[in-house]
């Protein structure tokens, strides 16, 4: 295979894993910028993916809707479930001033158990099957654009394209609007923000709910792009998204790059046998899979001084503190 062939083969796959990662990492960014650490992303993704997959499965069997409409409804349901599930974390973290890591761990444990339990009741097995393939072979019009068309609009998923669109909107909201600025202030210096009449509790709820929506949707995107059934797992994508956030230094542009790098490594680990150069290296799959986490650790170790992490993330809001 020539270099160009390899690129055309790999890039769509990489983009398919980049988008859910970037979207979920952006969700984590919303939550952390508002001052709540949300490591429950994995659990929220599982819940969103699970209910989304059930919805899609039922619609496939009973309603005769166009296939992409089904996908769209599934994504929406995933987002709504994500919001509802994340409210549990928001309540514990914001109102109850609970330890945010512990309440998130509870959600992470709850989600897969609940998914298996419920799926067994409904389907008899823990797998939720999805019948159709949601790949779009050619997006009319756009696919004929040279290079970009080949990479983005051939053999793409609606969920991927939608994910890119939502990512852009979310970044604009967070960085270019008044509400976005207010939300970010809650994670930096909530006491100062409060003194200016900003409702910290409300905005923190918003931050966590947005992260829930994005993670829930990310779960559905994961199901649609990577498999033909949902098996109570999102393969650690929630935690990987957390790594993306840190590797991306809490900055949307860098989050995209980080997500691309992480997605690239995942794709290489499974496709390296067709790439002559990498095949000659003869490294194990796991080395490529491990690399993103190790890279994040190295970044943490060496640039922690320039970290752009929100200063008040993880602290319950205490109005009496200065």
């Amino acid at each position: 295979m020539s270099f160009a062939d390899i690129m055309y083969f790999i890039l769509p796959l990489v983009i398919a894993s980049t988008v859910p990662l970037a979207l979920v990492a952006l969700g984590a960014l919303f939550s952390e910028r508002s001052g709540v650490i949300n490591i429950a992303l994995e659990g929220i993704m599982i819940m969103g993916g699970f209910v989304g997959a059930i919805t899609i499965h039922l619609l496939e069997e009973n309603a005769h809707l166009p296939i992409q409409t089904v996908a769209l409804i599934g994504l929406l349901v995933g987002a709504i479930i994500g919001i509802i599930f994340s409210l549990l974390h928001a309540f514990a973290a914001i109102n109850m001033k609970a330890n945010q890591i512990i309440s998130a761990t509870a959600l992470n444990m709850f989600a897969p158990a609940f998914a298996i339990f419920t799926a067994r009741i409904i389907f008899g097995t823990q797998r939720v099957p999805i019948g159709d393939s949601y790949i779009i072979t050619r997006v009319p019009g756009l696919a004929s654009i040279p290079i970009i068309g080949d990479i983005f609009f051939q053999g793409a998923y609606l969920s991927t394209l939608l994910g890119i669109f939502i990512f852009i909107i979310a970044v604009i909201v967070l960085y270019k609007t008044k509400q976005g600025l207010r939300l970010r202030s809650c994670g930096e210096n909530p006491q100062a923000a409060d003194s200016l009449g900003i409702n910290i509790y409300k905005l923190r709820y918003v931050g966590v709910m947005v992260s829930g929506a994005l993670a829930g949707m990310g779960g559905v995107i994961f199901v649609l792009s990577f498999s033909t059934s949902f098996n109570a797992t999102v393969a650690g994508f929630g935690f990987l998204a957390l790594a993306v956030l840190i590797f991306g230094n809490w900055n949307p542009k860098r989050i995209i790059m980080a997500a691309f790098f992480f997605g690239f490594m995942r794709v290489i680990s499974s496709t390296k046998s067709v790439i002559p150069f990498l095949n000659d290296l003869g490294l194990e799959d796991e080395i490529y899979l491990m690399l993103p986490y190790i890279a994040t650790l190295v970044v943490l170790a060496f640039v922690s001084k320039n970290s752009a992490a929100p200063r008040a993330a993880g602290e319950p809001y205490d109005p009496g503190k200065r």
Binding site: A92, M96, S103, T105, A106, L107, M109, F110
Partner: peptide, 9 residues
């Protein structure tokens, strides 16, 4: 999971 969540509160 519910027990942990409850004890987080």
């Amino acid at each position: 999971a519910v027990i942990i969540y409850a004890s987080a509160l």
